[in-house]
Design a protein around this nucleic acid. Structure first.
Lengths: 330, 330
DNA sequence: CGATTTCTTGAAATCGATTTCTCAGAAGTT
DNA sequence: AACTTCTGAGAAATCGATTTCAAGAAATCG
């Protein structure tokens, strides 16, 4: 009884395989009596269709790929839940792969997705320029990027308005009296890092402050990178730090601590992303918060739309990111 | 050029599909000239075998399932990396699914794994008694549980020695002078929670202290649950808390803060799991640390072994968990 | 009532790979 | 030289589903 096939069910029910298929896929009218015999046989044998055989024939799978760049960053698991929920509601299942911001790993997973003929892929690309999705596109597998965009490929994307949020955060700091605002940026290969930097510059310009390249340090979107970048900036005695990513925010807090500085007394700090993680552990902090779960959900929705209508022009969904001001008086 | 098949390659190279297959799978001798023609055609057409068709024929996939219970707990992503690394080294790819400790979701993913005919599954079961892996076993799909065991099913498992670690942590607290040690336990449906509780009791007994059921509160392995459980215990004025999970440890710290208590001055605290996350944010804390990455790696290794030799008797791998004492003087 | 349409159902083709079968020609043996 | 043994390569079978095609029964209609 290792593997029950549609033929076994057919035999048990005294019908043809075609009829079993029709019952299971509710395709056409099947006489009630036969239908019941088939259902009973399916139940009794514990039959479960071989999805390989099925999708070989139908040329369609119901599996979505989700390729993210850092699974240990809680931001992405939260996106994953959004994707999963939307996908399951539509009868798709989701498989997740982690690239660790490594282009080679990313490429390999894109190839796996192609070989598996996945129905579509949600991707947080490691690089806006170097990530190459041709292996999918040439096979007609739709791609939606999430969190980050891809330059030079006309694909759907679901992102937040990083520029506006960074601009707003910068203006907020200026509003509280800061003049030398250090910026801890991300890897410039990602659009998020570029957009957030641009927002920071826009904010400064709007406030009539000069942009000083020395006050910008780039980290790798990880704790240690944020710590090192913040450490470098602190030597220039800024009166504020704006850290453009959740993990790096933790690193920056550590760097402040290392330097014997306290927020908000000694220096102002604005961080990025929800830190639900840190409930009660973090000092109160003004944060740029993103609708993370929603980001994933919308990305999956966009992908499912794209699967249904492959030919529509690419669509960029931009969700708002909001500034959650949580600043104790200084 | 949507989909290149083996037949297209064969035609382009002027050989039969069988020969193309032989070249690609290095099965048999193929004349050098033909081989080169085939390789050239594959390259030129960008041919990639349809893995559905292949595994339909070979009855073997090279995909492992990894079913975990809480993707937002950094413990599991770290396991995932261990699994991925070991799997990739052996030419397998890994797909990940998240159950949120929900038995229904878990069951659905087990069924997906069965339908996809995955080569094997690494599972962190939501319940030691209620999780039902028959849908896989009856189809000959091997299962290895990780972090947690499954009672009543003879399957391989890779866990840490929770009992010994909890015992050691308890004895450590007693050694620093604590007498009323509160215990924040996990959901009793998991073997980890049961084992850690047993270790706590063993430790107390060994130290000659009575076990007081009132000093035990069970949380759900999440931050809020840990916070609530710790809050309840704090009303009984314990002189120490032993928290048996990483997220709940964060919750407990918050609860201490809520109650205006400070560690270590007012109350001793021992937590669980690496909190690399918290670098620099946490007060220095004695922690039971687990070899998380290794847990995942060994689980994948065990699964691959099992795939090769299905008939060997089940094997329980138990890794040590160590107590990292990091206690400032009181 | 006979002709035509509509339903049900089973037989057979199909998806794209791998693997078994088969056979022609090369190589080896006595 | 005659016979056996290898070897390499194509033809065809196979994996397990869905879908087209064909046929007989039932229903509809003039």
């Amino acid at each position: 009884m290792q593997n029950v096939t549609i033929g076994d069910v057919a035999k048990a029910a005294g019908v043809s395989p075609a009829t079993v298929s029709r019952v299971l896929n509710a395709n056409q009218g099947v006489a009630d009596e036969l239908r019941q015999r088939v259902v009973a046989a399916v139940d009794q044998l514990g039959y479960r269709p071989n999805s390989q055989a099925r999708s070989l024939r139908t040329r369609a799978t119901s599996v979505l790929g989700l390729i993210i760049s850092d699974i240990t960053n809680p931001f992405f698991p939260e996106i994953a839940r959004g994707v999963e929920d939307a996908a399951h509601a539509a009868g798709f299942s989701v498989v997740l792969a982690n690239t660790d911001e490594d282009l080679a790993k990313e490429q390999r997973y894109l190839e796996v997705a192609a070989a598996e003929r996945m129905a579509g892929v949600v991707l947080a690309p490691a690089s806006s320029a170097e990530t190459d999705i041709d292996v999918l596109r040439s096979r007609g597998i739709p791609v939606v990027t999430v969190d980050r965009r891809l330059l030079g490929h006309p694909v759907d994307s679901v992102t937040v308005d990083n520029l506006a949020a960074a601009r707003e955060a910068t203006l907020h700091l200026v509003g509280t009296g800061c003049r030398r605002i250090g910026f801890v940026g991300g890897p410039l290969a990602t659009t998020t890092a570029a957009d957030r930097l641009a927002g920071y510059r826009d904010g400064l310009a709007e406030a009539g402050l000069a942009f000083d390249p020395d006050l910008v340090a780039h980290g790798d979107y990880r704790i240690d990178g944020g710590r090192a970048a913040a450490k470098r900036l602190l030597q220039l005695t800024p009166d504020a730090l704006f850290v453009s990513n959740n993990l790096m925010t933790i690193g920056a807090i550590t760097a402040l601590d290392d330097a014997g500085l306290r927020h908000p007394e000694d220096i102002a700090l604005v961080g990025f992303d929800d830190q639900t993680w840190q409930t009660g552990l973090l000092p109160p902090l003004t944060l740029v918060t993103q609708p993370t779960y929603e980001l994933g959900k919308q990305a999956a929705t966009a992908l499912l739309d794209r699967i249904r209508t492959p030919e529509a022009p690419p669509n960029d969904v931009v969700l708002p990111a909001t500034l959650a001001v949580h600043e104790p008086r200084r």
